[in-house]
Nucleic acid binder design. Structure first.
Lengths: 407, 407
DNA sequence: TAAACTTAATAAATTATTTTAATATCTTTC
DNA sequence: GAAAGATATTAAAATAATTTATTAAGTTTA
C-alpha cells in the first residue's frame, strides 16, 4: 500500500480516520502507512487515547518478534447520524464509530418529487430521531445524507430535489439542527461504503452500480470517490444506449434506466401477468411498488421462469452499458449494489454475455464483477463514511473538548 | 491553486518540474505552492543554481512591494528525446527544457502493423538521430514515446505493436540506447501536452480527443492523466455506439472509429468523388493517404461543400460519443486535438448539435469545447512531458554529476 | 515627496522530526 | 530449552523545518 502524505498538523485526525476504516492497527503499521517516524505516531496515539478517541485492543499475533499492541477507535467516543434517502422513503440511523446502529433504524415515508416541504419534513424527522434516541447532539460528529438527484457534494446542493432556495443543504440543515451536515448523491455514497467496508475494500478502480428504482453509478478512481467537475459524474442511466428504446422520464429515448431499472422490471412483470404469463408473482400483483420489488427477488430465488427472464433481460442491457463504462474507465472491479443487488446472482450470466459481445476482449478479460454484501445497509454505512471523510483536525479539537466536558 | 504535498527529500526535483511546467516562478510563489517555508525553498533554489539546473531570469512586476526575483530552468541544462509514433510514421526530436527542438524534427516511415522488426528499426532511428545531432547521451534526460495501441505505461508494454517478447519496452529500449525510456499511449501523451502546455493548461477535468486515423481519448482526472487499472482507460473509439454501423477493424459493428475517424472521412471522400460528387479534392484523389488527409483540411477551409458535409457528419457522430463521455465523466473541458484538430472548427457546430440532442441539458450546459493550439506538435511535447513526469530526486542527482563533469 | 504600507530575502531562534541506541518481548532454531 | 534473530516500544541525541525578527526594495497615498 502506498504511503499517504499528510501535513503534521493533520496527522492525528488522519490517524483516527485510518483507524475508523481499518478497525485495528499498531503503531508500527501506522508509521509505514503515513511514512512518519514511530515516536511521532506514538505521541499522536497517546494523545488520542488521553483525549478519549482511541483505545488499546490487545496484541496482534507476532510476525517473528515482540507482539504489536493494536489500537482502535473508541466506538462510543462519538456518534454519526447516517441518512439514506430514495424517492419514496428515507432511513435514519445513528451509528457509533464501528458503524453499528445505536438505536433502531427508522424508515419514514418522504416523497421527494414535487414536494416543497420535503426538506423541512426531513429536518423534523432528524430532530425527532435524535430526541427519541436520547443521544446528546454534542456527541454527534455530524450528519451524512445520501440522496438521489443531481447533487453537488462540494456545494451541498441538490438540483433535483430538496430545494433550499439556492442555499447549500449542508448549511441549511446545519443551522436547523446544529450538526455539521454533508450531502452527496446516493450512488456515490454507496460506492464509498463498498470501497471502505464492502467487497471493494481498499481497491483503487471500482465502478459501483446502484441497482434501484433507477440505475445509478458511483465511481472510485485512484482510490477516491470521483464526482467530476460539477459533481455530476456517473450519470450512467441516461446515456444514449438503444436506438429506439422506451421513452424515459428524462425526456429522451433509449436510456438504460428506461429499459432495465427495477421500476421497469416491476412494470413489465405486472404487464406480463395481466397478459397471462404464469408466475408465482400473481399473488402480489396489486401490492405497492416496494413490496412487489421485494417479492421479485424472493420469487426469482425460487426459480420462477418469468421473473428470471425479466431479470436476465435487464441484466443483458445493463451489461451493454457496462461494456461502455469498461471501455472508458478500465476498472478493476464492478460491484452490483443497491437494493437490487439481491438479483445480482441471476443477472451475472446475461451481464457476462453482453460483455463478451460488446467489449474488446482484452478489456473484459480481467474484470471482476462482485455482488455487494452490504446490500441495503450500504447507503447507511456510506452516509456515515461521508461524515468521517470530512473529519479533520479542527473537528477533532472541537470534539475533544466535548468529550472532556463529559457531555 | 491547491498546495502540493511533497516529501522533503523530493523537494528539489519537484521544484525543477514545477519550473519546467510554469516557466518562471519566484521563491515566494514556490513557497506557497509547496506549503514550505521560504528559507527551505531558498536553499533548494540556490542548490539548483549551483548544480546548473536553474537560472535567475530577472524581476517580476511588483504587486505592491519588493519585486520578486524569478527563476527558471536553464533551458540547455539537459535535453529530452521526444518521439511521436503513429501506425505509418514516426517523428523523432530532441528538445531542450523549454520544449524547443534543438535539431530538425525527423519524420521516418515505420509501419507498426505486423512488423516484427519495427522495434529494432525504431532503436536504430533513435541512435542514428542522436549521433546526427551530436548531443552527448549523458546530456539527455530520457526518451519519451507516444504510440498507438493498448499500452500499459506502468509496465512499459504495448500489447498491440512493437512486441519486445513480453519484455518491457522501457527496459528494452533502455538497454539498447542507454537512456531511460518511458512509453505511453499516444492519446494520453497528447492529453499530457494539452494539460501542461496547451489550451487545457492546469485544468483538473479534461477530456482530450485525439482526432487521427483512429479516434483516441486521453483523460485528465483530478489534474492527472488517468489510465485505469490496466492502463487501457479511454478506449473510446470502440464503444458500441451505432446499432447497425460499419464493420470495424476490431471485429465489432457500430464503433465510433469505423464511422467518424479521418480514415473513414478520406475513404468516403474518395468514394463520393468516384460516384460523381463535385469537390476540389478531385485533383488529389490518387495521392497517398497522408497527403489526402492534409488536403481535406485545406479544402474544407476554402468552403468545399462536399468535404464540409463529410466533416459535419463525422462531427455529429463524435458528438454523440462525447455525450456518453460527458454523462460518465462530467468534465469541465473537452479538447479536440491530434492531426484532425484542424477540422475542429467545422466540426464544432455538429458536435454541439449532437450534445443538445443526446445530453441531459444540465451536463452539456457548462461544457467548454476547445480546439488544440499545439496541433501536430502536441504528441512531441507530450512525449517530452512524459519524461519530466518521471523525473525524480534520484535522476536529479545522477544528472547533477553529469553536468558538473561538463559532458 | 515623504510617510505608511506591501512584499521579498536573509539571519537567528525556536520548534518539530527523524535517527540512533537501548530495552522489552516474542519466534525460531540448533 | 537456551541462544540467536526479529519485531515493538521507549528514550536520548542529532538533524531539519518553521517561526520570528530584521533588512531591503518597491508602491501608494496624503
Amino acid at each position: 500500500m502506498k504511503i499517504k502524505l499528510v501535513k503534521a498538523s493533520e496527522l492525528k485526525s488522519e490517524i483516527l480516520k485510518k483507524l475508523y476504516y481499518e478497525n485495528a492497527l499498531s503503531c508500527a503499521e501506522l508509521s509505514v502507512l503515513f511514512g512518519k517516524s514511530l515516536p511521532i505516531i506514538m505521541k499522536a496515539i497517546n494523545e488520542l487515547i488521553d483525549e478519549g478517541f482511541v483505545v488499546e485492543v490487545g496484541y496482534a499475533p507476532s510476525s517473528g518478534g515482540r507482539r504489536p499492541l493494536n489500537y482502535a477507535v473508541k466506538a462510543d467516543a462519538m456518534y454519526i447520524m447516517a441518512i439514506a434517502m430514495d424517492q419514496l422513503s428515507t432511513r435514519i440511523a445513528i451509528v457509533d464509530l464501528c458503524n453499528r446502529p445505536v438505536a433502531e433504524v427508522e424508515m419514514v415515508e418522504l416523497l421527494l418529487n414535487n414536494n416543497a416541504v420535503a426538506l423541512d419534513k426531513l429536518i423534523e424527522y432528524i430532530n425527532a430521531y435524535i430526541l427519541k434516541t436520547g443521544i446528546a447532539k454534542e456527541r454527534i460528529l455530524g450528519i451524512g445524507i445520501g440522496m438521489p438527484g443531481f447533487v453537488s457534494a462540494a456545494d451541498g446542493i441538490n438540483y433535483s430535489y430538496l430545494d433550499a432556495h439556492g442555499q447549500s443543504l449542508n448549511e441549511y440543515i446545519f443551522s436547523a439542527t446544529g450538526l455539521p451536515t454533508y450531502v452527496a448523491n446516493d450512488s456515490s455514497v454507496i460506492a464509498l461504503a463498498e470501497q471502505k467496508f464492502g467487497v471493494a475494500k481498499a481497491q483503487e478502480e471500482v465502478m459501483v452500480i446502484n441497482l434501484g428504482w433507477g440505475i445509478g453509478l458511483g465511481m472510485i478512481v485512484k482510490g477516491e470517490v470521483f464526482r467530476g467537475y460539477d459533481g455530476f459524474a456517473g450519470e450512467f442511466s441516461h446515456i444514449p444506449l438503444f436506438e429506439d428504446g422506451a421513452l424515459c422520464i428524462c425526456g429522451k429515448q433509449g436510456c438504460l434506466e428506461a429499459e432495465a431499472s427495477m421500476l421497469v422490471v416491476v412494470e413489465k412483470a405486472k404487464e406480463g401477468i395481466k397478459q397471462g404469463r404464469l408466475s408465482t408473482l400473481q399473488s402480489v400483483i396489486d401490492d405497492p411498488l416496494k413490496l412487489m420489488g421485494d417479492a421479485i427477488f424472493e420469487v426469482a430465488a425460487t426459480g420462477d421462469p418469468f421473473v428470471i427472464e425479466l431479470l436476465s433481460d435487464a441484466g443483458y442491457k445493463i451489461g451493454k452499458a457496462l461494456a461502455i463504462l469498461i471501455h472508458i474507465m478500465n476498472p478493476k472491479t464492478i460491484v452490483l449494489s443497491g437494493r437490487g443487488a439481491k438479483g445480482g446472482k441471476i443477472m451475472m450470466a446475461p451481464i457476462q454475455l453482453a460483455l463478451n459481445k460488446y467489449c474488446i476482449p482484452r478489456l473484459a478479460a480481467n474484470i471482476e464483477i462482485l455482488i455487494s454484501e452490504l446490500g441495503f445497509d450500504g447507503e447507511i454505512i456510506g452516509a456515515a463514511v461521508l461524515v468521517m471523510e470530512n473529519f479533520d483536525q479542527e473537528k477533532l479539537i472541537i470534539n475533544t473538548k466535548r468529550i472532556q466536558m463529559n457531555i
